[in-house]
Simulated scan of single mutants.
Amino acid sequence: MSATGGIVLAQPRGFCAGVRRAIGIVERALDLHGAPVYVRKEIVHNHYIVAELERRGAVFVDSEEDVPEGSICVFSAHGVSPAVRSGAADRQLEVIDATCPLVSKVHQEALRFARDGRIILLVGHAGHEEVEGVLGEAPERTVVIETVEDVHRLELPADTPVGCLTQTTLSFDETRKVVDALHERFTDIVTPSEDDICYASQNRQNAVKELARRHDLVLVVGSENSSNSLRMVEVAREHGAAAHLVPDAGRLDEAWLTGVGSIGVSSGASAPEILVSGLVERLAGLGFPDVELQDGIAEDVVFAMPGRLADPVTGRIPRTPLADESR
């Protein structure tokens, strides 16, 4: 696909619909209300985006309790627990919810499983913001598991009614192994449909698999706390390529390029294209000037913005610079 000294850019890569919506919500809130607009946790897991929004007047806090009473507070794309919503109400915060609709779907499934009397087995990384939010829907009925070994350690009878949910940004292959183990372990189990793994995460993992099969090295642009970006690196390695996470061009280790003929480049769902461009530019200066675009899926998913952010005169929601960054 690529000659020696070439780069192939993954398709798709970069922003997903949920990330575009979340960033756009913060930008639009700043346009309507002015600074400061408080955001609980990082709106998405990317250092560049957080810094840009801070420059425009967003204030990122660890807890809703850190937001002055009566202020505007945006909930991040990763979702929050009912306890957080209650705490925000107690402080009379004007909440704007940027939770990704796919994450909201998992929250609703957790509530349904709890109403049905099932124990919820949540496949994900303990402590991740998305997992904490879903766990909070029914904490007394939810167990977080991450590996097949965790499944074997569960102290539940085989006939326990259980429901399985997954963190949306996990590797599909990794999740399937855990879900298969749960099916072997329990006789009364309801498992998620494949679309509980975020469409964007799955598309980007599939594109990275193809890069890994064809290129010596795969570089994934994304922040170190981005779950979906880290999974992409793991997927590339599992499919035979050397692979590294690159938060930005300045973090590229030139030693990785030794003996490399061609490079596949992708980016996580929360990484802006400007960081990919910066990496490509640096690679060009290091002997990889040719750039091709991988054949792949063209995503056209769009999630609607909250109606409360519409222009009070026209009723429209204007485009926002960061959220609408194009390739």
Rank of each mutant, 00 (worst) to 15 (best):
R20L: 01
G24M: 05
L30V: 08
L32T: 04
V37Q: 02
V39D: 04
E42H: 15
H45A: 07
Y48L: 13
L53F: 06
A58P: 05
F60S: 05
S63C: 03
E65L: 13
V67D: 00
P68C: 12
F75W: 05
P82D: 09
R85S: 09
A89D: 15
P101H: 08
Q108I: 09
Q108E: 11
A110L: 03
L111V: 14
L111K: 13
V123G: 01
E129Q: 14
E129L: 11
E129Y: 12
V131S: 08
E132T: 14
V134F: 05
P139L: 01
V143I: 15
I145Q: 02
V148F: 05
E155L: 10
L156D: 13
A158Y: 03
L170N: 08
V178I: 14
D180L: 15
D188A: 10
T191D: 13
P192S: 08
P192E: 05
I197W: 05
A200D: 06
N203I: 02
N203F: 00
Q205G: 10
Q205F: 12
Q205L: 11
N206M: 14
V208D: 02
R213E: 14
H215A: 09
H215R: 09
H215W: 07
G222L: 06
N225G: 07
L230W: 01
R231W: 00
R237Y: 03
H239P: 01
G240W: 01
L245G: 02
V246D: 03
A249E: 13
L252V: 12
G261W: 01
A269R: 02
A269P: 05
A271R: 04
E273S: 06
V276M: 10
G278F: 08
G278A: 12
L279T: 07
L279G: 03
R282C: 00
P289Y: 06
L293V: 09
I297C: 04
I297A: 10
A304W: 00
L309H: 03
A310D: 01
P312W: 09
V313P: 05
R316E: 15
R319M: 08
